[in-house]
Structures are given as structure tokens and as C-alpha cells.
Design a protein around this nucleic acid. Structure first.
Lengths: 226, 226
DNA sequence: AAAACACATATTGTTCAACAATCTTTCCTG
DNA sequence: CAGGAAAGATTGTTGAACAATATGTGTTTT
């Protein structure tokens, strides 16, 4: 069990600009790429040893990550990699259902060409059945949508939410291939946008998000019987 | 200059559940109520003394506040109460223009009665020309709108944004009375909602937000000549 | 054998003191 | 008066220590 930590590459001897920031981004990456699975406990002593930083600095890193939604901190119990439940899935989609259609409908900086480009990559990934690439493209697609709002804070919230989405998929490793559905749906959105039907695109995206939420919830409930 | 800190009430001797959390919320309150003005430097030594906590714990509190947008942390320079500039105002309104109209148009938990109630309080405050109460009512009004999305994260982002809005007003203490305008505008919104015209309310709110942003920016530019 | 309790152990929460790294101020020199 | 070096102050980070809380173990009790 403690072997988990040995896989974490230590930082080189050089001094990092902000150690706590470096700690946070390192852990973020470990979690995003599935090397630290949902539910894992992040022991302070073990981690501070593995990363070569003091417990105090590690705790600052934890505090930074806490707002990232990907860890859950339980007082006097410790820090764990978040393992999203049904409520989290609903929360994620409540956020997305608000921000993304609004960005499509009213965002002042909508970049349809960039969206088309991403669709192209997604289609290529779909042909070779490369799920990881499709997931990346999907994430980029939705980040680009949010970028239309012109708000850095909304973009940040969106990447946090999408990071948590990845945890959902890591926790449901037996999930069917949702991503290939997304490719064609995203393509239909771009078609609507290309003909200037932004409001219709917003409505359609809402339908898509509702569908995706229902699909995920169904799979979660069935794979997580109580 | 150091007298600023003496005004901060110390915590009682009792142990706080999470000291860093307590530190953060204490500072948040001090800033929100204008006892710590934009631009003030928050010295680690002075503050840790005044609050009766160690520098380490204070730093954890800083890290918590950092995601609240109301402080700015400059590496090796220190922590300052944020003093919003034109870009911040634009960012605030980019967020609000996205979230709030979406909440009005599509939010599944829109509570029109609660909005009417808040309008009542705002009108009462307007009659007695109590600006603080009007500001409070305005904040509640817009938080209630966002609550319609059903998302705790969006609500949290909104309160952060509104907290930063308060800093804008603190920084422009010579600002004219914007709030009384808001009261009647919010009233018009509720009228639209009461007749079931949610989309029209969303559009109207967007116009209002654009107007308010322009007013604030104009006042900022003129009062902050370079 | 199962449940309940007490004790020992491990982990987290917080403080303190120290030092390195960086910024700020002062003062000296040209 | 400008430029720059030295002194001073502040932040960034560490390690050790201790209190508070949670976990685990073993014994007793029924």
C-alpha cells in the first residue's frame, strides 16, 4: 500500500519557485493521470518524504488542492483523493448546464473555427479508437466553449469541474465508451453554430448534458449497488 | 500604520476547530466590512501576533483566502488586500453576465417569491436611504438568482465575485449612489418573472449588467486618472 | 464467541525557532 | 544627484516538538 508513493518522481535538487505550488501541481497531475486512485489516502509523513518537502509545505499544497475539488480533507482524519458520488455528478452537471449553454448563447468570444479544429482531432481519435485522445479532445472542446465567456474565473472553474469528471471516469473504470457518443454530438453543435443558430446550439447542448448526466448516473447507480 | 492590526479582535482562548479556517474567515470579515482597505499589506509577523496564531497557520489561512479573490499574494513580497482595477471589474461582469442570465433563463430552482421578498427589503432600505442595507439586499438578490442553478460551486463563485464587488466600492468611496438604481431594476426583473417571461428577464438582466459595468468603469477611469 | 471497554499507538493540527532566499532601505561613493 | 554596495527586514521553508484526535489491540464482561 505504501508503494504508491514510490512511483512519484521526486523533484530535482533545484529550489522550486513556490514549493507548495509545485507540490499541488505535482499531486494534481498524479491524480489526473490515474496514478493516485479515488479513495487513496495521502499520508502526510509518507508524502512529505516522497516529495522531499516538509510537512508544513505539504499541508500548504493540500490547502491549494482543496479548492480544486479533487481531494477531500476530513478533519483529524487526513486527505484522500476524492471519489465522486452521485451527488458530485449532479453538481458537476448543474455547473455545466449553466455555464456552457450560456457561453454558446451569449459568449462574446466564441471561436467556432477552434471548435471545428478540435472536432477534427476528436474524429481522428475516434477512427483509431484512442479513448484517451478522445477524452482530451472532449475536454478541450468544452473548455473552448467556456472560453467564449471571456472570463478566466469561469474557465478555471470549468477545468476544475472537468478534472473531477476525470475522477468520475477513473472511479468507473468499467464504464462503457461514452466518449465516442460525445464526438458526434459535439459535431452537431458545431454545425448549428456554423449556421448562426447559437440559441439552438445552447438548447441542444442542454439536452446533451442532460442525457450524459443521466447515462453516467445510471451507470454509477448500477455499478455501485448498496 | 501598524495600528490597523490592533483593531482586530483576538479569538478567545478556546481552541478553534480549524485555526487556519478561522483565520481566513476572520480576515474575510475584516476586509468585507472595510476595516482592512484595498492595498493594505498584511504582514505575517504583525498579523500572526494580532490573531494569536503561528506564522505557519496564518500562511495556511492566506492560502485559503487566495482563492477568494480578495487578497493578492506577491511572491517574496507579501499579501495585500486586493485593490480591483478595470480588468477586475470586467472580469467580474464577464462572470455575472454568464451565470446570472443563465440562472434566470434555465435555472431549475428559481425562487421568485424569495426574490420578491428581497425586493421588499431593498425598497424599505431605499426609503430610509440606508445604502449598506441596500447593498446587502442587492447581494442577496443576486445570490438568490444564482441559487436557481442548484449548484453549490456556482453559488460559491458568485459570493466570491460579489465580495470582490464590495472591494470595488470600498476602493471607490467617492462613488455616487449606484445602489438605488439597482433597486428599481431588480424590481422590473421580478415583474417579468412573475409573468413567466424568463427569457425576457434574462435578456433584460444582461442589459442591466452591461449598463452597470459601463457605469462602474466610467467612474473608475475618471477617478483613477493616470 | 460477541460486545464493550481501556490502553497503547499512529496520525493530524499547531506552534516554535532557525535559516536561506529575496526584497527594501540606508548610506556611501563617484 | 545618480549608482551601487552593504545592512536590515520580510517572506519561504525546514525540522522538531507537543497537544488533540483517531485507529488498533487486547482484555474483560456477558
Amino acid at each position: 500500500m505504501s508503494e504508491i508513493y514510490t512511483s512519484i518522481p521526486l523533484g530535482d535538487g533545484s529550489t522550486h519557485a513556490h514549493t507548495s505550488t509545485w507540490v499541488a501541481s505535482t499531486l494534481r497531475q498524479e491524480i489526473a493521470e490515474g496514478r493516485l486512485l479515488p479513495g487513496s489516502k495521502l499520508s502526510e509523513q509518507a508524502l512529505s518524504n516522497a516529495l522531499g518537502v516538509s510537512r508544513n509545505t505539504l499541508r500548504e499544497g493540500f490547502t491549494l488542492l482543496d479548492s480544486d475539488l479533487i481531494i477531500s480533507r476530513i478533519p483529524n482524519r487526513g486527505v484522500f483523493v476524492a471519489s465522486p458520488d452521485a451527488a458530485d455528478i449532479r453538481e458537476i452537471y448543474a455547473v455545466r448546464r449553466t455555464i456552457e449553454p450560456a457561453a454558446l448563447a451569449w459568449g462574446p468570444k466564441l471561436d467556432i473555427d477552434e471548435l471545428s479544429r478540435i472536432i477534427g482531432h476528436a474524429r481522428a481519435a475516434a477512427e483509431t479508437e484512442n479513448i484517451a485522445l478522445m477524452a482530451d479532445a472532449n475536454q478541450q472542446f468544452h473548455e473552448t466553449i467556456v472560453r467564449a465567456t471571456g472570463s478566466a474565473h469561469l474557465l478555471e472553474l470549468m477545468s476544475r469541474v472537468l478534472a473531477k469528471m476525470r475522477l468520475v471516469f477513473h472511479a468507473m473504470s468499467d464504464a462503457p465508451d461514452f466518449h465516442s457518443h460525445y464526438v458526434s454530438r459535439n459535431g452537431a453543435l458545431v454545425d448549428l453554430l456554423n449556421t448562426g443558430q447559437r440559441m439552438e446550439a445552447a438548447d441542444t447542448l442542454q439536452v446533451y448534458l442532460n442525457t450524459a448526466e443521466a447515462e453516467l448516473l445510471e451507470h454509477y447507480e448500477s455499478s455501485q449497488p448498496r
